[in-house]
Write a protein that binds this DNA or RNA. Structure first.
Lengths: 195, 195
DNA sequence: GTCTATACAGTGATAGAC
DNA sequence: GTCTATCACTGTATAGAC
């Protein structure tokens, strides 16, 4: 009992740090985010962070897996819809729903991937790619269930469109871009014929 | 005579620094690129850099305008083609031609824009947006000349697709993505009916 | 104009008290 | 397990010799 309580407490602090890392690094980027920034956001004393994460890279990895977890929650939710077409449209709706965040800070995973691909080869860049791959694989699955030829090509187009519209919305600071492109993607999904 | 020679020399050094800034920052990102990195790449003594650029931000701005210059060269070249459809297809071909660089470091302007949008509001983020806007405006012009309705929406879709495929190719380290999506875009441009 | 030396600030990480 | 104090290092920027 005492044991599990201690673990739960420790786990809670660790979880606060993970979520803070994901949020702050999304806003500021991984490079310019300091350990102190994350400690402050998680309300944990600075020096104590190193008890939970031995290096800053471990914190970046934690942020990445937090994003993966968020993605899992979303797709698990969409998977409850019976029609794959509706699942895809639900995904797009979710993207558009995040338009203000995307216009301000871009796609959490996409912007992090861009940054890590320029970093010093700690393998973190590959980790970021894996998170994006999760989304690609899920989308491919939906297109296949819809009976589409070249489902992975379609997934590439869909996810690419999302990353592109997020980047443009972010660079031009215009959430309206997410709406315009989102509407186009919805029409595209609707236009697909079932085989 | 002596005067112009001196100016030319100074200009040459400054130009070397601009180009080095653009290249190195594309590979490493602006944040983790040090003044020393740029000085080394341009073969200029470290301390001397500050004679030409008073702050690091000025070097980032220089890198940005160097990218804008490259874009101007490309579009000016494409503008010599008589058919706007061929001009758009030429642009896509140029993107695919850069697939290895894109897979390794992403789109120079796009990745820089992503990074600067997380920086400390020196107005550099807006500058990056302007460079992307140059490309959007040029593409819109071509679609309009083709007699398309909603030319700026089409430009958004085209440039968004480019940014998206560059990001995915970069994150997954796969130049093949540039080829697949490039082929799709070419087919799309071909399928547009003239009004 | 060109370059060297250095001041100064900020950051990741560690040692060790509690 | 928790937290404070501190070290070692890196990087921007400046002062000033040549």
């Amino acid at each position: 009992m005492k044991e599990s309580a201690r673990v739960r407490t420790a786990g809670a602090k660790r979880q606060r740090l993970m979520r803070a890392a994901a949020e702050v690094m999304h806003r500021q980027g991984a490079e310019r985010t300091t350990i102190a920034d994350i400690a402050r956001a998680a309300d944990v004393p600075v020096g104590n962070v190193y008890y939970y994460f031995k290096t800053k890279d471990e914190l970046v990895a934690a942020a990445l897996s937090e994003h993966a977890r968020q993605l899992d929650l979303l797709t698990a939710d969409l998977d409850r819809l019976p029609d794959p077409r509706e699942r895809l449209k639900g995904l797009i709706a979710a993207w558009v729903g995040q338009r203000d965040l995307a216009a301000r800070y871009g796609c959490p995973t996409g912007t992090l991937a861009v940054e890590l691909d320029k970093g010093e080869e700690g393998g973190l860049d590959v980790e970021a790619g894996k998170v994006i791959q999760l989304l690609l694989t899920w989308a491919e699955h939906q297109f296949r269930e819809l009976g589409q030829p070249d489902p992975d090509g379609l997934a590439l187009t869909l996810v690419g469109a999302y990353q592109g519209m997020s980047l443009l919305a972010n660079a031009l600071r215009d959430p309206g871009i997410m709406e315009r492109e989102g509407a186009r993607l919805l029409a595209w999904i609707d236009s697909l014929q079932v085989a």
